[in-house]
Design a protein around this nucleic acid. Sequence first.
DNA 1: GAGTTTGAAACT
DNA 2: CAGTTTCAAACTC
Length: 784
Amino acid sequence: MDVVSPELNILLPDEIMDTEAIVMDDDPPAESPAASGQSQPSDDAPIPMETDVLAVPEIVSLCSDAPPTQRTQAQTTSITTDSTLCSTTSDTQLLLTPSIASSSPLTLRPATASTLTSTTLKTTTSPGGVSLTSGGLQKLSSNHQIILNKVASFPGADTTRSPGTTTITPGGQKFMVTAIGKSGQSIVLQLPHTGSKPGSGQGEAKAHPQHFKVLTIGGRTDLKPVMVGQAVSQVSTLQAQQLKTVQIAKKTQVSSAGPIKFIITKAVNNKGLTTQTSVSNVITGRVLSTSSPVTPPRTITLSETLSSSSKIAISPLKSPSKLTVVSVASQVPNSPQKSVSLPLNMTHLGQQILVQQSTATSPAKPMKPVQTVTVGGPQFKTIFPLSTSSNVQQIQVPGSRFHYVRLVTATTGSSTGQAGSHCTNSSMTAKPMVVNTAQVRMSVPIIPAQTMKQVVPKPLTSSGQVLTTQTQQRLIMPATPLPQIQPNLTNLPPGTVLAPGSGNMGYAVLPAHYVTQLQQSAYVTLASSSGFPTPTGIQTQARLPLNGLSTSDAASRPRKPCNCNKSQCLKLYCDCFANGEFCQSCNCTNCFNNLEHETERAKAIKACLDRNPEAFKPKIGKGKEGESDRRHSKGCNCKRSGCLKNYCECYEAKIMCSSTCKCVGCKNFEESPERKTLMHLADAAEVRVQQQTAAKTKLSSQISDLFTRTTPAITSGGGRMPFTFVTKEVAEATCECLLEQAEQAELIQQPQATAERMILEEFGRCLMRIISSAGKTDCPSINC
DNA sequence: GAGTTTGAAACT
DNA sequence: CAGTTTCAAACTC
């Protein structure tokens, strides 16, 4: 998922997916979020965590339930996104647009209610209208994730209106899909079967809150009618907790730093409001660029069932609010209009997968129509409700209170809302999930259950190599801490991916490193497939800080092979295991730290977590104020090393011992002369290494350049370069000359210094002869 | 490369 | 929680 700079891996999920900032704010700020381009999350409202189980699901039909005062004040209700404004409907509309598109981390939402994040919406009243601002899209109930966008039905709704607007099916339930970023595209959920009356937007919201489907399209405003099949109508009969959320978030290029903004704007009377709001989507410290070409409308059909099996990445170190996002490589935004079926099974709730679709905006490379839900610009997020039917399997993690689902790889073509339809996005399932940001890339493979064990990590053969695999899915698990919501899962090894396996536990816990290996070996990167610029074409999953190293450092660090013999590499003695990695190219014996022993491995992980819930968390905390605040979580316990050898974990992490350490005779403190001496030596050594490396690089470059420049001359016969004259014969002749000179010096009993000088002088003469001969004959002769 | 040292992890 | 054992990495020769 490098992923991501890997620092971004940390940053993105933390900032983007953080739902703690999502609050219900009944006291809106004077400044309109749309106008300011920033949401105003408040802290005064309690934030339901994912662990909170809500007995009654809350429908985020905010606009419908907006206070009269607000409605009266509101001239228009609009959904404010980072780049788009969705409000053209005459009636009440709820538009939810996540502004997280650009950096959208892959998010996985466990099926259980405890893992769901209940977010509150922020209602703000602005002079221009009533705006609903949500820090997050989802309103999660006990088992369900509800995400907004109820659209009141209104006759004459035009799906082809201004970019970013949502359209409702006349006479049916309305689903508003707000697009982020690009203009001209939006997704509209169309409910063929509706029990609501047109024009009764507000009342409908109350009467049928469960009817709300949220399709959030981030990144582009291309209008996309979405056909919600019978499944949607079924939802109306279901309880509110059965709500499904489809979130498509656009990832846009990040241009500046800033907090992530979720802005929900309610459009009440937005007549004439067809312009896009200029709202900066700030994600992960960056401003998302929302300018994107207008693309033709697209239709997305939501089918009932999702028949895709894949692994669900579970991030042990990420909170559920920062859930794994399945990034789907998507097509170019300018692809022709096409219908895409999104499987939805409204009868099965509580399982959602955030699928991020990363699309490279490469107008120069028109992409052929694919089955991917290509709704947006460079990046999208899509939440696919998963069915617990046969196509979606629930994964129970031992020791975990959270449920996971496995996606079934889509194998069939597009469906049009038929029951049991499959996820028709083959490309989506076949391509790696990539979280693209300016600095971070996080690629996550979705590995279908069928092929899970068939995938063998391969060493990277070519950095730029692009391989195509059409039947595999990737799910990523954030590798950064998610401490606040999933206490159990957060302790899993970094980057762990739960994948279906043959073991009796029904899943495999895949280490992040393995995911990275998969990414490097067998998957097409988004950038490679869509023309998204990428330096190497390799997606590197971000990893947790290891031993105080930054994620980038850890990621770039060549993994050290272990030498375990007795631990089966299933104990924390094994660094591979401790780092959440599979053993690969190790020297271990009787290794169980691989996919073939997924059951044992999972048990070992559980055992470790039982002993220490923090076992897989980084020991070196990241200080708030910088590196100086980094400290070992437990502290070392050194007694003989003086904490100045790599035995000491603090020293190894290049941090000083702190009060948490229980070391004896510690010399690893700020003023320690021994430490300073070692540091100086280390610095000097590092400088030397760098110099040597630079020299080698330069030399290699020069040699390469020399060959490049001389090859044409040699091959063309235009002339031979001097070095080509230094043949074996020439060298032997030169040596004979030098030896003879040495013998002569010895005969005349010259001192060694003089002898050396004579030899060197002779060598110089030899060189001169070689050079002079080079331009005369093809076979220079050396005569002493 | 073999042997020793070391301290974290695991165990009691 | 403390003491002991196990283990593999770090280190030395």
